[in-house]
Design a protein around this nucleic acid. Structure first.
Length: 887
RNA sequence: GGGCGGUUAGCUCAGCCGGUAGAGCGCCUGCUUUACACGCAGGAUGUCGGCGGUUCGAACCCGUCACCGCCCA
């Protein structure tokens, strides 16, 4: 016997362990089923489960579990990435606590410490994924720093280098002066700040008392100025173009150049040009062949390229000093408040400095072309579709991808330098040495490049490196390209685009056929969750409180396409209640001896209620499957919810009660078997969403030798029975109508009244007889007269009665002593008004001659029928009102 | 400035091909109906953001405006 309530904390670990141990998650290369593959976007090895993870992994698990049941050989490839900077920072912070820096340890020892840390703490997120019920093939778990994945990284780097698609270049990068590394554009956060615009007067050389005024938000960079630019069509400055100015403080002579970059409407229309410290100025500098004067060191302190007084100063101290000096020189024209954006490193939180360095670049513009084409031609499809615009936008404007990072934790660049700086790019040192020997004609010593590669470089290879590439493994052959990538929009640039480029280049095919982009989880007020706001909802806490299944179901039910998820705890509570409801329904079945019957054939049931419900099961299984095929998680979850609660519990089980309590043994046996079958089907349908409770009920509701998670998805053609549906819909309509009138007329629930039906068609009279037990029980009637004697009806009226219309029939509820005649009259009048308004709506359509002439005939016909029905109802209600008044 | 998304019941949101506006929560009323009060039954609530257009017919299609959110510059 099932416990009184479902206790998730006792059930969840048990089933998870069984699934994992029994190999139920494993994909099988030798399977004859067609593969279904999802690459799990690898969470950071430093990570722990947050709501975003809970959403994305729930959605992936729903797909994987569903497709596994639907007969596919499902591979959900798990793993984590090494998260270069993040991980390095974690370990550095630990060292800091012991008063040690990574430089004290040295590179090798430090890397060892990181691996130690990974072994100890790196498994947090994968443990938490198990808590969530995720069903990836854990045996295949990979890590971006694995040997195999590292081989892939080296192979890709060397191949691209030899193809001319990776090169070394000196360009401006986003330099993080705290972390001492280049970071990607995407790791730079543009923050709006209330800054100032300083207007500096630069004296024009050779023209006493003539100045050109430039406006800048970064006064300190003037020490690196190499020109002043004005717009070529700006007449104010036309005469000055070609002249020189004497840069204050520094004393350097710099030219005034004409360049369209200068915006005549902004500031003074003249702009100082610092090619080594601003991305736009860098371009201007190249156009005018200006010197690039680097004035900062790696800490963003001033270097020896500036006047002695300023050397070694911090950039912000220098700013103050410059402003003071300019004021002193009477060259500070004015200062205006100026809100503008400033780049911050999203990891370090410090202001990023554009800095000239030598870095490794991937020729992204070249690789992007096939990646763009793959989406344009529909080889890979975005869901929802509009995200392809974001992808196009990014891919069409893609810049060379700087892949080197000046940190230690990551894949070290496979490049070695000879004594003269000549570079040898090879997968192994031995090969580099050999290449060098060939180049120099003798063996030489080489030094390896100290940089490591951007983490996204290795994650870009994830869809094939995890399958064994560059080895030609059976997995690679079978599971690439994958079916779908499920992820948030925030990493379309970071990751999706890069996997597309690498996949196409190295595998010759797209890495996935579909890309499902889901929303962000926000708090109930729609704000982004953040630690600083304190509005973070921890999925683990929610799971403790409501059970994992409730959390999963909530996330799926709220995952409507194109909208963020506002998560409120009461939603989770509601779906916990749903789990309880299911549990209790199963208990009810158990108490009534509804056990699964071997060889039960749902298409052979005879009782109308049973024929009706099996049809609904088929319909629901179908709806859920179709919704999932279109990534409509919300629709899938709601279809299941509505059937389980609104049809199975609210109606079918209630219909079953009088049968169970009755004397028709054949009907009883059939209904028991049907109820058990329906419940089993429900468990199948809900399993992808609620794996734990369904597996538990599956194991408790019968003698099973299989796990639910490996059972086939219900595909049930031919079960829909239109006649049964029409009949049961009528029964439901009867009961609902009677209940509503009882409630409105304040008939006590305990009062068992009789019902006199008149005007039933012959067919419905039969239905009424067949289902009298059901109707009586659910509408709380003592007797149902299916063809009431007119005299009885008249008599009923003389003592007071309520009346209602169901289709063509009038139902009379004798309520002697209970009924308030005025109230009943008012109720009927209100009902008539409502019906009249329905008639009026249809009449309005017919009043327009074009409607009949131009609308589709079936629409016209449908409206005509509807009008007839409403009119008939109106007539009956009016008769009822008259009878009441005559009584 | 460019792009995308949103605006439907008190709240959160569905509403696929244009043809009778829905759900959950909340609210109100009643109920120890032997599965379930994490429940049952019943009920109220809408200028589908504004304006214009297309159409026999618009929550839905088109245009425009307003407001909110996000991304990019």
């Amino acid at each position: 016997m099932l416990d009184k309530t479902y206790r998730p904390s006792e059930v969840e670990p048990k089933h998870y362990e069984q699934w994992e141990k029994s190999g139920a998650f494993a994909a099988r290369t030798d399977s004859n089923r067609s593969p279904y593959t999802i690459m799990m976007p690898p969470p950071n090895v430093t990570g722990s489960l947050h709501m975003g993870h809970a959403l994305t992994f729930t959605l992936q698990d729903v797909l994987v579990r569903y497709h596994r049941m639907a007969g596919r050989d499902a591979l959900w490839q798990p793993g984590t990435d090494h998260a270069g900077i993040a991980t390095q920072m974690v370990v550095e912070r630990q060292l800091e606590a012991q008063g040690v820096t990574r430089h004290d340890l040295g590179r090798d020892k430090f890397i060892e410490r990181v691996w130690d840390w990974k072994a100890e703490s790196g498994g947090t997120i994968t443990r938490q994924l198990r808590r969530l019920g995720a069903s990836p093939d854990w045996a295949k778990e990979r890590f971006t720093m694995d040997e195999g994945l590292s081989d892939a990284v080296r192979k890709v780097f060397v191949t691209l280098y030899k193809q001319g698609l990776i090169y070394r270049d000196k360009r401006l990068v986003n330099w993080d002066p705290k972390l001492h590394t280049a970071i990607s554009d995407l790791e730079v956060e543009q923050r709006e700040v209330k800054g100032h615009m300083w207007h500096f007067k630069y004296p024009v050389e050779g023209e006493e008392g003539v100045f050109i005024t430039v406006a800048t938000t970064r006064p300190e960079t003037m020490l690196g100025d190499s020109a002043v630019a004005v717009h070529p069509e700006d007449e104010r400055y036309a005469a000055l173009v070609g002249k020189m100015v004497r840069l204050p403080i520094v004393g350097r002579l710099i030219p005034i150049v004409a360049d369209e970059y200068s915006d005549p409407t902004k500031g003074t229309g003249a702009v100082k040009i610092t090619p080594a410290h601003d991305f736009n100025d860098f371009e201007v500098g190249k156009r005018h062949d200006l010197p690039q004067i680097n004035i900062f060191d790696r800490d963003a302190k001033l270097n020896d390229a500036v006047p002695e007084d300023y050397r070694g100063m911090d950039r912000y101290d220098a700013r103050k000093k410059i402003i003071a000096a300019m004021e002193e020189l009477e060259l500070l024209d004015k200062v205006e408040p100026n809100p503008h954006t400033v780049p911050y490193g999203d990891r370090s939180g410090v202001v990023i400095e554009p800095w000239l360095t030598d870095q490794w670049y991937v020729d992204a513009p070249t690789l992007a072309k096939p990646a763009l084409e793959a989406v344009e031609t529909g080889k890979t499809k975005f869901h929802p579709k509009h995200w392809e615009n974001t992808y196009y936008e990014w891919m069409r404007n893609i810049q060379p991808w700087c892949v080197s990072r000046q940190i230690w934790w990551g894949h070290q660049v496979p490049a070695w330098y000879g004594p003269d700086g000549h570079v040898f790019v090879e997968e192994q040192e031995a090969e580099a040495l050999a290449a060098a020997a060939a180049h120099y004609g003798k063996a030489v010593e080489l030094t390896r490049d100290t940089d490591v590669l951007d983490t996204w470089f290795s994650s870009a290879l994830w869809p094939f490196s995890t399958l064994g590439w560059p080895q030609e493994t059976p997995e690679l052959k079978r599971y690439y390209p994958t079916d779908v990538l499920v992820t948030g929009f925030d990493i379309i640039f970071f990751w999706v685009a890069r996997m597309m480029m690498m996949g196409l280049h190295f595998m010759g095919d797209v890495p996935f056929k579909d890309i499902y982009i889901h929303a962000l989880v926000r708090d109930e007020k729609g704000q982004k969750m953040s630690k600083s706001k304190g509005n973070v909802i921890d999925p683990l806490v929610l799971m403790d409180k409501f059970g994992c299944d409730a959390v999963r179901f909530t996330l799926a039910a709220l995952a409507a396409q194109g909208r963020d998820i506002k998560l409120a705890e009461n939603r989770v509570e509601g779906y916990r209640n749903f789990a309880t409801k299911l549990w209790n329904a199963a208990r009810f079945c158990q108490m009534n001896e509804c056990a699964p019957v071997d060889g039960f054939a749902p298409d052979a049931v005879k009782e109308i209620v049973n024929r009706w419900v099996v049809g609904k099961v088929a319909e629901t299984a179908d709806k859920v499957a179709q919704a999932l095929a279109g990534y409509r998680y919300d629709a899938a979850a709601n279809a299941a919810y509505q059937f389980v609660w609104g049809t199975f519990c609210d109606w079918y089980l209630e219909f079953a009660k009088p049968i169970f309590g009755g004397t028709d043994e054949a009907a009883k046996a059939e209904t028991r078997a049907t109820a058990a079958w329906v419940l089993d089907s429900i468990l199948h349908i809900l399993h992808p969403f609620m794996p734990f409770i369904t597996e538990e009920l599956w194991s408790q509701m019968g003698n099973r030798d299989t796990q639910l998670m490996l059972r086939p998805w219900p595909v049930l053609p031919g079960l829909h029975d239109g006649a049964a549906e029409e009949e049961m819909d009528w029964v439901v309509r009867m009961i609902s109508t009677i209940r509503a009138v009882r409630s409105e007329m304040n008939v006590p629930p305990s009062a068992q009244v009789e019902l006199l039906a008149t005007g039933l068609t012959a067919a419905k009279g039969e239905w009424a007889k067949t289902h009298a037990d059901l109707i009586n029980r659910l509408a709380r009637l003592a007797v149902l007269e299916t063809a009431a004697d007119p005299q009885r009806v008249a008599q009923a009226f003389s003592h007071g009665a309520a009346q209602m219309v169901v289709d063509e029939a009038t139902l009379v509820l004798p309520l002697a002593g209970i009924i308030d005649v005025d109230k009943e009259r008012a109720r009927l009048e209100k009902e008539i008004v409502r019906v009249e308004s329905e008639v009026a709506k249809v009449d309005k359509k017919f009043a327009n001659p074009d409607f009949v002439a131009r609308a589709a005939p079936e629409v016209v016909e449908e409206n005509r029928e509807r009008r007839d029905e409403w009119m008939a109802a109106k007539t009956k209600l009016q008769e009822a009102l008259q009878r009441l008044s005559g009584a």
